[in-house]
């Protein structure tokens, strides 16, 4: 069974999507990730999509849902590495991912997560 690996980095989880996901694989990632947040007590999730050449409304919704579910489980999600062509296409498609924090790359995403931890779980400073 195909699975996207979820790596643990201290109190954060890192997911790097490197394959062209079919819909079921995307749904499985959503399940696996929310389970991992709970079992590992993760405070933050980084989703690296730098290898993704396309994000359609299905995958976009999956990402927004993960972010929402993680928030309810007291973890922050940062989406990192979106390619410019993907960003242009997403906005034209009509999907702007409101409420999903983004960063240019994994390093900056990590900084963003650390800062939000230092701020003492201040949601207001994290959420756009």
């Amino acid at each position: 069974m195909d699975r996207i690996p979820i790596l643990r980095m201290g109190e954060f989880l890192l997911v790097t999507i490197q394959v062209d996901m079919h819909d079921e694989l995307a749904m499985r990632l959503q399940d696996d990730l929310t389970n991992a947040i709970q079992t590992k007590g993760a405070k933050g999730v980084l989703i690296d999509i730098s290898a993704m050449e396309m994000v359609d409304s299905f995958i976009g919704r999956m990402i927004a849902d993960i972010s929402g579910m993680a928030q309810i489980l007291d973890a922050k999600t940062v989406l990192v590495g979106m390619q410019p062509a993907v960003a242009i296409t997403l906005v034209e498609l009509g999907l702007t991912l409101p409420g999903v924090a983004t960063a240019l790359n994994v390093d900056r995403g990590m900084q963003l997560l650390r800062r939000s931890m230092d701020d003492g779980d201040d949601d207001a400073s994290f959420q756009r």
Binding site: M54, D56, F58, A85, V86, I88
Partner: peptide, 17 residues
Amino acid sequence: SLVDQTKIVTAASELAR
């Protein structure tokens, strides 16, 4: 171009689904 490729691929994904 890469942007045009991404646009038609994304449109195809939506319509195929």
